[in-house]
Design a protein around this nucleic acid. Sequence first.
DNA 1: CTGAAAGCGCTTACAG
DNA 2: CTGAAAGCGCTTACAG
Lengths: 356, 356
Amino acid sequence: MSDRSVNLKALAGHLDLTVSTVSRALNDYPDISRATRERVKHAADALGYRPNQNARRLSIGTPETVCYLIPRQHGASSQPFIAQLLSGLGEALNERNWDLLVCQADASAGDLETIDRLVTSGRIAGLVISRPLKNDPRITLAQDLGCPFVVHGRSDHCDNYAWYDVDGEDGFFTAVNHLVQMGHRRIGFIGGPLEYQFAQERLDGYLRGLSHNALAHDPELVQIAEFTDEGGSAAAGLLMEQPTPPTAVVCVTDMVALGTLEALHARGIKPGEQVSVIGYDGLHFGKHANPPLTTMAQPQAHAGRRLGDMLLSIIDGADPRSFHELQRAHLVQRNTDGPAPVKAGQNDVSVREDKQ
Amino acid sequence: MSDRSVNLKALAGHLDLTVSTVSRALNDYPDISRATRERVKHAADALGYRPNQNARRLSIGTPETVCYLIPRQHGASSQPFIAQLLSGLGEALNERNWDLLVCQADASAGDLETIDRLVTSGRIAGLVISRPLKNDPRITLAQDLGCPFVVHGRSDHCDNYAWYDVDGEDGFFTAVNHLVQMGHRRIGFIGGPLEYQFAQERLDGYLRGLSHNALAHDPELVQIAEFTDEGGSAAAGLLMEQPTPPTAVVCVTDMVALGTLEALHARGIKPGEQVSVIGYDGLHFGKHANPPLTTMAQPQAHAGRRLGDMLLSIIDGADPRSFHELQRAHLVQRNTDGPAPVKAGQNDVSVREDKQ
DNA sequence: CTGAAAGCGCTTACAG
DNA sequence: CTGAAAGCGCTTACAG
């Protein structure tokens, strides 16, 4: 245990040295004699001296602190990986004894003000922005302020800054190909609000999957939902009520996919048999869904650590444009994907029958 | 947008006043003429002046920062509510323009050192400790350091500090009563490592439920598992392999309950029909389990906000012992609880049959 | 190799 | 009502 009351001055007095010498000894200045350096460090340990960080940071001119912007919940548990992300970020920061601040701030006006305040009042030296919109004012703000930042995800134009992302476009392309290989020809898509760049990308991947397989894009087969199970359920309902419902549905997130399963159950349709469903995220929970959810799993283990390292490098002066890291999602096959029903295209899983 | 370069001195120069006057005007000192105060504030706004917080905090002698200790993952997603907690905490802190630091630190030696450093280097004025052990060295440390803190949960002796908790003892008592009312007489318990106080409490509630209903406590019916689905699954396996397996199982967390469901499925046992299962937490996801999981739901919405307010009050000088807030969990009945099978006690859902 | 001094950007008694 | 000065606890050129 240390004592908050022992400061440099007290330590110096104890050693019969000046604060100047003691400070340099502690910071390994080369012009301090080895004997003195060791004596100082020893005493510092013994007295439990810890430099006051506010004073130190004021003096060296950096807050040695970075802020992670928690996105506001746009639907339940919109940040399933937040604990892991924070711990990775913290790991990178800890190596330098930097601190991690968290602050809930999305792209809304009041929150931009909060970010502005944080950087202009000298509290943070860098920013981690997550879940960016296509055109995200937080990114513009950080740029205008000259505040180093990294983005978890990408916005519309992402050439000028550092980001770490998982390739959702590729993920949905992969999911669609997988379904086509299983014989599906009518594949629906339940997406999220397109102001989010990742929602757009996932839609793009779906569309590319269709055209790659020479399937027509039927706008009726594309539904936009909130990122919740309720959202997914409602959207899936609309899909299944169509004259020719899809035999497979790809969903923007696992949560949305769970809602889709629910909608299918409600209509007496068997997921994985009559209608295939593929989610995206790879939530551990999906394993326990009914039936276990097939999904495109994002590799999330290293996101925090990588973002933290990138940000630190940029603060050190590295070119942000040199950090563009794109990971791939991979298919985790559980039980909601299966071969297309034999009479695909004219299959009989329409809700109308159930309603009678 | 503001300018980091305009400091008090620049602002004072611009106004032809001294920094002393400007500072007092900005901070609403009563001895500043109204005209001056308004002129100063106006100019501060116009120039986008923001006091440097490191300097300010060094001067006033408090870091105006509080730290939330993220518990290390003791099993997957051990902190399902972390995002909500952080945002509640941030809300309370924001009102005073305080900051929220996060730091991953459990009760292990290296992490205690981290906490020590954080407080003795003057970086934080308060601590939020979560998932306490029965005898948690973090609590002892905070006390020794004289660092104000609040605990999310309780440890063995919790009279001397502030805490916010959900009554797990009562929750399990309630769950057992519910099962007894449905005719169950042989009720199993899958708990977590008893070094965690909440694991002990939930076990206590289970035991009280038994004795309250004049049911014998069969030690064979109590299994300890890791807080994961795999843990739950293994423990449930042991329970069901007994000569007279239970007709109902209460589980320390929803995750463990999901593992239990899996173990039952693997043995061809129908949850909610042949064997009832009740979880604890009230995770939204449980709704999508197979079948939807009955659980004791914790009210989590206000935990962060309440903990933040408590901590701030204590830092202001309030007596920590005046903050003991105990919430109750409530039964969310979904589909894994049901009446005891008719031939309870000698029912035939033994794993041995399946193995042949 | 060590000391004396200035400075980081604030706040706050103390004069006047 | 405003100014001059000291202080918060560090770091870091600059002397010697």
